[in-house]
C-alpha cells in the first residue's frame, strides 16, 4: 500500500492490521512520534491525518491509505521551524521532552482550526496528551504564544 507522509509517497508492505505508529517508526524511520501507552491514552504518538489529530498507536495502517499524514518531522520547512515549534523553543516548557512531539502536533491541529483559542479551549484540546514531568501550565503558555493575538 501507499502512505502519504509529510508530502512524500511511500510504498510499504505491511500486515493490514498493524498500527500506523509502528510503520512510521520501524519502516519509515520517522521516530519523532513516540510510543507511550499503546492504547491511545497518552497522546505521545499524535500525528495529523487529513488535518485531524490522531493517535497513531491505535490507528490501523490500512485505514489511512490515500490520506495525508503529517508527523512532527513534517513541520519544519526548508530549515524553518513551524510557528508552534518556535513558540515551544522560546517558552522552553519541556523537561524530558518525550511528550513534545505529540503535544506539538495536538497544538498545531488546534491552532489550525482555532487560531486564537481560550485557555479552556487549549486545555480541552490537549487533555489527551500526558506530560508526566507535569509542566502543563508552561505548555499552555507556549501554545498561547503561538496563538494569533
Amino acid at each position: 500500500m501507499v502512505l502519504d507522509v509529510n508530502g512524500v509517497k511511500h510504498e510499504v508492505t505491511v500486515d493490514p492490521d498493524v498500527e500506523l505508529l509502528s510503520v512510521l517508526r520501524n519502516e519509515l524511520d520517522l521516530t519523532g512520534s513516540k510510543y507511550g501507552c499503546g492504547e491511545g491514552a497518552c497522546g505521545a504518538c499524535t500525528v495529523l491525518i487529513n488535518g485531524s489529530p490522531s493517535r497513531s498507536c491505535i490507528t490501523p495502517v490500512t485505514s489511512v491509505a490515500g490520506k495525508e499524514i503529517i508527523t512532527v518531522e513534517g513541520l519544519e520547512k526548508n530549515g524553518k521551524l513551524h510557528a508552534v515549534q518556535e513558540a515551544f523553543l522560546t517558552t522552553d516548557p519541556f523537561q524530558c521532552s518525550y511528550c513534545a512531539s505529540g503535544m506539538i502536533m495536538s497544538a498545531v491541529a488546534l491552532l489550525k482550526n482555532n487560531p486564537a483559542p481560550t485557555e479552556d479551549a487549549i486545555i480541552k484540546a490537549l487533555n489527551g496528551n500526558i506530560c508526566r514531568c507535569g509542566t502543563y501550565p508552561n505548555i499552555v503558555k507556549a501554545i498561547q504564544l503561538a496563538s494569533k493575538p
Partner: peptide, 8 residues
C-alpha cells in the same frame, strides 16, 4: 532544545 521539538 531544538532536537526535541523537531523530533530528531
Amino acid at each position: 532544545g531544538r532536537s526535541f521539538i523537531t523530533g530528531k
